[in-house]
Design a protein around this nucleic acid. Structure first.
Length: 490
RNA sequence: CGGGGUGUAGCGUAGCCCGGUAUCGCGCCACAUUUGGGAUGUGGAGGUCGUAGGUUCGAAUCCUGCCACCCCGACCA
């Protein structure tokens, strides 16, 4: 099957592509810029969905669904929002096809839509147009709604999971009576995201806010969590926006307060996407393939029998059947791979490629000794373990792997936040070390833009609770009150 | 959207300059021997050579248009 993958040092970006394809997560589709998410990749997404969905429900949110299509005029209502998305919108102009008489199917020019429809790149406009009808009084607030959906952004260059023309995500859209409450909500959801990414995906993040340049089109404040990939590039793993009253004003959404006065509603929106799968891959995986943290793994433990002849297999299988019951009782997702069409070595390599956290091999020798061979994916080490009490051992091992992955990523991240005090040093660090560079910035969009043009690095975020410290901007030498995190990013 | 490149079996490729219906490897199928890290042998199946047209007795090969993909820019929360 020749499933060799390119090593990370040879070509990191090819390594990434190889993992996605060879771990069977996704593939390019017949449609330009759009991917097919394969069952193994989708299983990871489903796992992410179910955990996040529970977290959203626990913080008081409900799911709903809004249309895929948005009337073009809605878009124009919020000026900065249009500017942000105009260049990457798919537009529906007709609603019918016809036969041209020569056996070709063509667009029926007589079926032109009176108003073109935009395929949603995000749903703020259609949602705020809807909320207008839901909100009259402070008693109708807050509205805490989330939707799981697909969106389309017509990107020029795409990468599986990281940037595709269509992708899956969730978008939360909330409406509040006060500014404070809306800000609190957007911060709360940022922390929900950080909690998920760190504790489930085992990827450490920096929580912060975006500079004006990087802010969401239409937001007053964009909060984000930034993660660091193994090649030293940053990846925005989630964003949460305080939208102020911008959309309420654009769609005329007002409510009557306790005091009887009419006021515009305060808004937030927040989202994470299938891009998280890209983050997962680039944070943990190695040259043998994908590495999935146990808490997100669709299969946590795979059992591979090693046998000669059906008689040996039967003995092993009856033991495994009992073991599976015990593992499931501990909540462990287990798979027994007794396919006779593949040899053990092949299976070992396959599950390594697919990132299964723990592999158990059981052969005749083990059956005689009352042992199994346990191999962990994160360290690629093997141990012989007693069958007795195996379920407890595995439960602890899975937790240990989860922790180890996080610690490893955290260690890498922390050793890749470097201070730079001059522009020369800044550029050298970017080229030679990568990672986040903590540097003083004069706070102006112009300076950020120039640094971006000259170095391809952007301000990833201004960390929350950022220590205040007097200094001078690395580019302009103007006074600065704090350092911000720069990096080259995905 | 600019500049460059590539399209040949599921995947990776040879052939193209110098025109004669296609090479090799992996994978796939069958059988046998195998099974503690990607098995081996024997046999077999699989191709509108991206697509449309042109030149020619004859086109994977030469010419033109189109499409797709890749790389570099531009663009991108």
């Amino acid at each position: 099957m020749s499933k060799e993958i390119t090593s990370r040092v040879t070509d990191y970006s090819q390594w990434y592509n190889d993992i996605v394809v060879k771990a069977d997560l996704a593939e390019h589709s017949a449609v330009r810029g759009c991917m097919v998410i394969k069952p193994h990749g989708y299983a990871i997404w489903e796992k992410m969905q179910s955990i996040l969905d529970r977290m959203f429900k626990d913080t008081g949110h409900s799911n709903a669904y809004f249309p895929l299509f948005i009337p073009k005029s809605y878009f124009s209502k919020e000026a900065s929002h249009v500017d942000g998305f105009a260049t990457e919108c798919a537009v529906v102009t007709h609603y019918r096809l016809k036969n041209d008489g020569n056996g070709n199917i063509i667009v029926d020019e007589n079926a032109k839509l009176e108003e073109e429809l935009i395929v949603r790149p995000t749903s703020e406009t259609i949602i705020w147009n809807t909320y207008k009808g839901w909100i009259e009084s402070y008693r109708d607030l807050p509205i805490l709604v989330n939707q799981w959906a697909n969106v389309v952004r017509w990107e020029m260059r795409t990468r599986l999971f990281l940037r595709t023309a269509e992708f899956l995500w969730q978008e939360g859209h909330t409406a509040h009576a006060t500014k404070e409450e809306a800000i609190e909500e957007s911060e709360r959801m940022l922390h929900v995201y950080a909690d998920f990414v760190e504790n489930w995906m085992a990827v450490p993040v920096v929580r912060g806010r975006k500079s004006a340049n990087e802010r969401f089109a239409g937001a007053l404040e964009t909060y984000c969590i930034e993660a660091l990939m193994q090649d030293g590039k940053a990846l925005q793993a989630g964003t949460s926006h305080f939208l102020g009253q911008n959309f309420a004003k654009a769609f005329d959404v007002k409510f009557t307060g306790r005091d009887g006065k009419l006021e515009h509603v305060w808004a937030t929106s927040w989202g994470v996407s299938t891009r998280l799968i890209g983050a997962l891959i680039m944070a943990h995986s190695d040259d043998s393939g994908l590495v999935i943290p146990p808490k997100l793994a669709p299969i946590q433990v795979v059992i591979v029998p090693i046998y000669k002849g059906t008689e040996e297999l039967e003995v092993i299988s009856s033991f495994v059947t009992e073991l599976i019951v015990k593992l499931k009782a501990k909540g462990i997702a287990v798979k027994y791979d007794d396919r006779d069409t593949q040899r053990p070595g092949f299976k070992f390599a396959e599950y390594e490629m697919k990132g299964v956290p723990v592999r158990i091999a059981i052969g005749k020798r083990d059956m005689e000794n009352g042992t199994v061979e346990v191999a962990r994916r994160d360290t690629k080490t093997k141990l012989t373990v007693m069958q007795d009490g195996l379920e407890i051992y595995l439960q602890q091992l899975l937790e240990e792997i989860q922790q180890n992955l996080f610690d490893r990523a955290l260690n890498f991240r922390d050793s890749h936040i470097t201070k730079a005090d001059s522009y020369e040093q800044f550029k050298t660090l970017l080229d030679e070390k990568g990672g986040f560079i903590s540097a003083h910035w004069d706070g102006t969009p112009e300076t950020e833009q120039r640094i971006k043009e000259e170095t391809k690095a952007t301000i990833r975020c201004i960390p929350l609770d950022n220590p205040q410290e007097d200094g001078v901007c690395i580019l302009t030498g103007k006074p600065s009150v704090q350092r911000v995190l720069f990096a080259r990013a995905y």
